[in-house]
Design a protein around this nucleic acid. Sequence first.
DNA 1: ACCTGAACACCGTTCAAGT
DNA 2: ACCTGAACACCGTTCAAGT
Lengths: 192, 192
Amino acid sequence: MHRRADVIAAALDILAEVGLPDLTMRRLGATLGVQQSAIYHHFANKQLLLGAVADEIVARGPHSSIEPDAPWPQRVRLACTDVHAAVLAYADGADVVMSMFAFGLGGQAAYDRLRSELRPSGLDEAVTASAARTLLHYVYGHAFDIQTRAQAARVGAIDPDSPEDDFAIGLTFVIDGIAGRANALGPAPSRE
Amino acid sequence: MHRRADVIAAALDILAEVGLPDLTMRRLGATLGVQQSAIYHHFANKQLLLGAVADEIVARGPHSSIEPDAPWPQRVRLACTDVHAAVLAYADGADVVMSMFAFGLGGQAAYDRLRSELRPSGLDEAVTASAARTLLHYVYGHAFDIQTRAQAARVGAIDPDSPEDDFAIGLTFVIDGIAGRANALGPAPSRE
DNA sequence: ACCTGAACACCGTTCAAGT
DNA sequence: ACCTGAACACCGTTCAAGT
């Protein structure tokens, strides 16, 4: 009857409508029309299910394309805004993707794309990996902040208060810092 | 008998010994020698307790001093390594502090210190605030990653794999990006 | 292979009642 | 002011048993 993909889709529906605290095995079973225990036939535990959900959130997000000869900082920026938009599309999406990535259970696609886009920078592989993780930490951290603040505002604990271009400003800081180091050791015009 | 500070201290003990999932009201009550329900006389709910715990984690962390005439990027870097060390000192410290900061319930001290250290950059207030948040997102995101990976490694789900100087590399990217923008509009020698 | 039904060992929170 | 004792409405997970 049901396949793994059905369970993941139902989980995303719940996430979109309510949020992570309401994504319970009981509610998931009710959405699928089965007992809660039936889900354990498809996923050994909830954590592994959330890992698959994290992958799907990133996969369903935008994958903007750009001229192949565009400078790499511009391509990196596009990759970051894509991931940012992807996790913002579902309530607590940043929480799920960030946690699962750190646990090694999902969100690997975003990390791989960033490393790939950073390759033309000329930075060695170890520094490139650090740069990709720095970008991810910022993107996830910013999205988590937005989503948590929205939830806090809904409970009336806080005023949202975050400016419109906040994400873009911070992203420019990080990318400029990476580009600055890349320019310091080779030719790769990115600004000016 | 017990005061608010006793409850917070007991919560930090539990965090240091085990971790956030074991920081239950029942265990907290047992540590304090009271019923779980007694804690609700000091904190209206668990979330407000965690907010106070987050403040205490930051307060107990290092507060490194430096020559007052040191360049501001150096002072900002020190503030970041202080906060990083503070949250790493307790299991799931990054998770608690990050969540409570986003919810507006704690960790305000770190944000205020960063904004203060960034003032000499000459950036206007809105950009300075964005810069401070960018740094916090990176610091918390990185620490969260480390602590979650450590937990995953304990369960045997992943290899730790993160290089030693990873935090320093990413921090340089972010600070250089901020300094680059500051230098573009006024005199403030930070590098070279 | 896929699911049911019932249980187990937990949670956070509430509340009358005590001192 | 501070705490007890007991309950309420939940959790994730397991497991024998069905088809």
